[in-house]
Computed example of a mutant assay.
Amino acid sequence: MKNNCKYIGKYISQLYRKGSSFISKELNELGIGSGQVMFLLELYRQDGRSQEELSEVLHIDKGTTARAIKKLEEEGFLVRKKDEMDKRAYKVSLTQKSKDLKQNIFNVMLNWEDNITSKLTEEEVDMMIMLLKKICT
């Protein structure tokens, strides 16, 4: 292991905590937690996905996905319906409430991204994205 690598996890952890705090603070009044927002963002990309597909796409275990979906459903952001093709599965869809808040949610996410990239050049941002994608694969 390289000497400088022992600190990478520390910075990733700090970014995660700061991001969670920022997003929670901004979305709390809407009734959305930082752990739930990723599900909404993914459904904004493609509505009507199964819980299992959301778990796979987001790399989140099925139990955590089920809890997040349940909470979002209780708050009126999502509805779950039995899949017509696979009666064991549920399709998850956005409600009008979550559709109406789409721009607000996107603005919070963009504000966070602006916040963490404000001291970086455009080239540094591009490099960071490329490196993070490489690490995640």
Score class of each variant (00 low, 15 high):
39 F>M: 06
21 S>L: 06
132 L>T: 15
9 G>F: 09
13 S>P: 02
37 V>P: 02
58 L>G: 02
120 L>I: 04
52 E>I: 08
101 L>S: 09
80 R>K: 15
70 K>T: 13
126 D>E: 14
82 K>L: 15
60 I>E: 00
88 R>P: 03
94 L>H: 03
9 G>I: 00
39 F>I: 10
86 D>W: 10
70 K>D: 13
37 V>G: 02
74 E>S: 15
65 T>Q: 09
110 L>K: 12
10 K>Y: 10
6 K>A: 03
16 Y>N: 09
4 N>I: 00
59 H>P: 04
18 K>W: 06
93 S>D: 05
127 M>T: 15
120 L>H: 06
59 H>I: 07
98 S>Y: 03
102 K>P: 00
118 S>E: 13
108 V>L: 00
76 G>N: 10
19 G>H: 03
90 Y>Q: 12
30 L>Y: 13
38 M>W: 05
64 T>G: 09
30 L>W: 06
100 D>L: 13
55 S>I: 01
121 T>V: 09
83 D>Y: 13
96 Q>V: 06
26 E>G: 07
90 Y>A: 12
104 N>D: 15
101 L>M: 12
130 M>A: 12
80 R>F: 10
40 L>K: 01
18 K>F: 03
31 G>E: 09
51 Q>F: 05
92 V>F: 02
13 S>H: 05
61 D>C: 09
71 K>D: 09
136 C>H: 07
76 G>E: 01
69 I>P: 03
69 I>C: 00
116 I>V: 13
76 G>K: 08
63 G>A: 13
115 N>P: 01
51 Q>P: 03
65 T>R: 05
69 I>K: 01
119 K>I: 11
43 L>K: 03
118 S>N: 13
98 S>E: 04
131 L>Y: 12
45 R>F: 10
16 Y>T: 00
13 S>G: 08
68 A>V: 09
56 E>D: 08
3 N>C: 11
69 I>E: 04
18 K>Y: 07
35 G>S: 12
131 L>V: 11
101 L>P: 06
104 N>M: 14
32 I>E: 00
97 K>Y: 05
53 E>V: 04
91 K>E: 06
93 S>A: 11
86 D>V: 14
79 V>W: 04
53 E>M: 10
77 F>A: 07
102 K>A: 04
92 V>R: 02
33 G>R: 11
39 F>E: 03
115 N>Y: 15
66 A>Y: 08
44 Y>M: 03
102 K>V: 01
